[in-house]
Design a protein around this nucleic acid. Structure first.
Lengths: 225, 225
DNA sequence: ATTTCAATAAATGTCGACATTTACTTAAAA
DNA sequence: TTTTAAGTAAATGTCGACATTTATTGAAAT
């Protein structure tokens, strides 16, 4: 009989998800110390699995660990979020070009469905933003469509969590005008045409625009620390 | 009194380095299982720090961990090494362009010293390869010079270990003809001129050439598994 | 001989306790 | 009052043992 998904994940991986979400939402705030003794009491687990979860979150860039001092949630500075977006631009533009070569037609269909939903949402809520989940789904579909596991891991496991944290905790960082939808359409068009160079350029510009918006809004509105 | 570097690192971080090196050199071969019970006896440590080290190596892409089954050293396939080089091209070209903007003159001097040493080595050992350490030092200097900690971490902590493993275990993957030295000079020239676009292009091409060499040699010589 | 199943052995996951280092508090001295 | 230092409290690092799951072995049945 074939093996199905395990009913009980390991405690360590449960803790990883729990803490990750708590960090993204800000329930555990930036810069906060993750005290092992306190958390183990609060969550009613021993320190072993907790330490493993913390090591994993370290690998996801969500936590910084100093030997003999403990672990702290990363602090999102203006500098850091711009560095993240520079990195994202480099990786995701490559993912876009690879997606144009490697995506299945089913995956391209999925992109169309997501764009249509985004378009519908914009029409019905005039001038509204693209819902964060729909935007993530769009980008994740392309990233997975690149069929490059290394880029996929770097983006989804190590950058997107930080981006989600940033967006979740800073309203002004939420997506994005009608421009984004237009740019999404341009990207899908390029992928559909199997034009990897165009996909690379349109994706690069899409991320660069997002970076510019962040930089602009941050300078005027709220100088992050 | 100011705090100096600690005399005794934590056991867990010692183990991380030890295992990392053993994996890179192939002392622990690709695909091998990292049995906790066996390793804890061999290295005479308890399983706690060992498990933490394994989690860290997981974050460095050197190990794959399956719950309830244990950890195995990554297997380097033809597909994987090419994916790594595609990722490296995207990241390091960006690092090159940022280095042209952000490197200090001291760092640029360091690049010159490295190139001169490489040049001297080539003259004295006719047609020899650039020593691996010198090549790594060159690229690391540029990557750090980008002043982008996110890119730096992605490259040095998550890609270069895999590249070192690949090179160490496959002689045919060792660097590189006189071409590499010429390309190094082109990159330094661009950085020196603070020409970020040129630095991006020359770096991109340098990595792309390395990728092509690997692909070519792999097809004729030894089809990796 | 091959397959299936039960029993056993071994490995990973988890826990609690001890050791050592760091942080804090309090008292003494300047 | 401020600073320094000793002593105490707390936190991280490490260890060994138990629990549960997975892998292996061997015997029985087809």
């Amino acid at each position: 009989m074939s093996q199905t998904t395990p009913l009980s994940n390991t405690l360590s991986s449960e803790l990883t998800s729990t803490l990750r979400d708590a960090i993204i939402t800000g329930e555990i705030p930036q810069g906060a110390k993750l005290s092992e003794t306190r958390l183990s009491k609060e969550l009613d687990v021993s320190r072993g699995p907790l330490r493993e979860a913390i090591r994993r979150l370290e690998g996801m860039n969500l936590i910084q660990h100093v030997p003999q001092q403990g672990a702290r949630v990363v602090t999102m500075s203006m500098d850091l979020i711009l560095q993240i977006y520079d990195t994202r631009e480099a990786l995701e533009s490559k993912a876009g070009s690879l997606a144009a070569l490697n995506m299945s037609s089913q995956e391209i269909d999925q992109l169309h469905r997501l764009i249509d939903a985004q378009s519908k949402h914009m029409r019905e809520n005039s001038g509204a933003f693209i819902p964060a989940e729909s935007d993530y789904a769009f980008h994740e579909t392309i990233i997975r469509g690149s069929k490059n596991k290394v880029i996929e891991r770097a983006l989804l496991r190590e950058l997107y969590n930080l981006i989600k944290m940033f967006r979740y905790q800073h309203e002004f960082a939420r997506n994005s005008t009608t421009n984004s939808l237009i740019e999404h359409r341009q990207i899908v068009y390029a992928i559909e045409q199997r034009d990897s160079e165009l996909a690379e350029v349109t994706t690069r510009r899409h991320i660069a625009h997002a970076r510019e918006r962040i930089q602009r809004r941050m300078q005027q509105q709220e100088p992050l620390q």
